[in-house]
């Protein structure tokens, strides 16, 4: 029993750290442009396919990962430059101005899904992790915790630390926070707000790319728009970000870990078919009990 408990915990923490990355990507975009990017999972999907192409040609995960990150960052930057700016210009007034960005990012998600399915669908898209996914042994028992899962955890911890330092301690971070907080004043103090926004999207794009790559190798090594892995990324990033309060990177990381644990325990101890509805229920509970999130200033959620 004890053994199963430890296993469930370790699975949950690993999955949760991937959700944490997704949540941080969503928080980065939210903090730099006040848009919830529902296409984030789509971008992660596309970046993962970039990584897969690199994997096919170079045959090394350690080349594929940076390629995916770079591709993800570039793609996100282009989307912000071309698409989001046009959107802000076109539909900043009118009856549905407040919901237009939401609808637009959803449309983007649909387009990315369809395009990736047209290009890569039906193939056996497989990415092999850099280290083995066979569990460590503890006495006579085999843990589910493997070198790969350890690697994922460590990478995510390092990324969370790097992003937090970037956000809180550097000038770039200050510019990011200032442009989100008050674009007008930031512009007055010489911050290139448009550039900073693009940067926020690019950072989010590459964080999402890492999440996509790890989600793939942590699962059965395959990834497609119709896979369970992809649907999980789609909802869990948003839910983890909301649990964390949507404003804080650390909150997003904690939210992701919590969500991973909850899903893992529900899967093991309650029922495997509640797998998908569990995140929704977690979200509802959080919204009712602590709508400002775990780490979040007390303000209402009518953004």
């Amino acid at each position: 029993m004890m053994f199963q408990l430890i296993n469930t915990f370790l699975i949950g923490i690993t999955a949760g750290s991937i959700y944490a990355l997704m949540a941080m990507a969503i928080v980065l975009v939210w903090r730099s442009t006040r848009v919830i990017n529902f296409a984030q999972a789509g971008m992660a999907l596309l970046s993962t396919y970039f990584g897969y192409e690199a994997m096919v040609h170079m045959n090394s995960f350690w080349i594929a990962l940076p390629v995916a990150m770079l591709g993800g960052a570039l793609f996100a930057a282009i989307i912000e430059l071309v698409f989001m700016r046009l959107l802000v210009k076109r539909s900043s007034s009118g009856h549905i101005a407040s919901v237009a960005p939401i609808i637009a990012t959803l449309g983007l998600l649909g387009v990315i899904r369809a395009v990736t399915a047209i290009i890569w669908g039906g193939q056996d898209v497989r990415i092999i992790g850099p280290v083995s996914n066979f569990g460590y042994t503890l006495g006579s028992e085999v843990l589910v915790f493997s070198p790969l899962k350890l690697l994922i955890l460590l990478t995510v911890v390092v990324l969370v630390l790097l992003l937090t330092i970037l956000f809180q301690k550097t000038n770039i971070g200050l510019a990011l926070r200032a442009s989100a907080f008050s674009p007008e004043i930031a512009r007055l103090s010489g911050v290139k707000v448009d550039l900073v926004r693009t940067l926020g999207w690019a950072l989010a794009g590459s964080a999402g790319a890492v999440a996509g790559m790890f989600q793939t190798v942590n699962g059965n090594g395959t990834f497609s728009p119709d896979s369970i892995e992809f649907s999980l990324l789609l909802v869990s990033g948003f839910i983890a970000a909301v649990i964390g309060g949507l404003e804080s990177l650390v909150g997003a990381a904690i939210g992701g870990l919590l969500l991973g644990l909850v899903i893992s325990f529900v899967l093991m101890y309650v029922s495997s078919s509640l797998f998908f509805i569990a995140p929704f229920i977690v979200l509802l509970i959080v919204l009712f009990i602590r709508p400002q999130g775990i780490i979040g200033v007390k303000a209402d959620r009518r953004a």
Partner: peptide, 13 residues
Amino acid sequence: RLSGPYLAGTTLA
């Protein structure tokens, strides 16, 4: 109690 992106995300889930 929600609006905009929160509602969209909740209903998405």
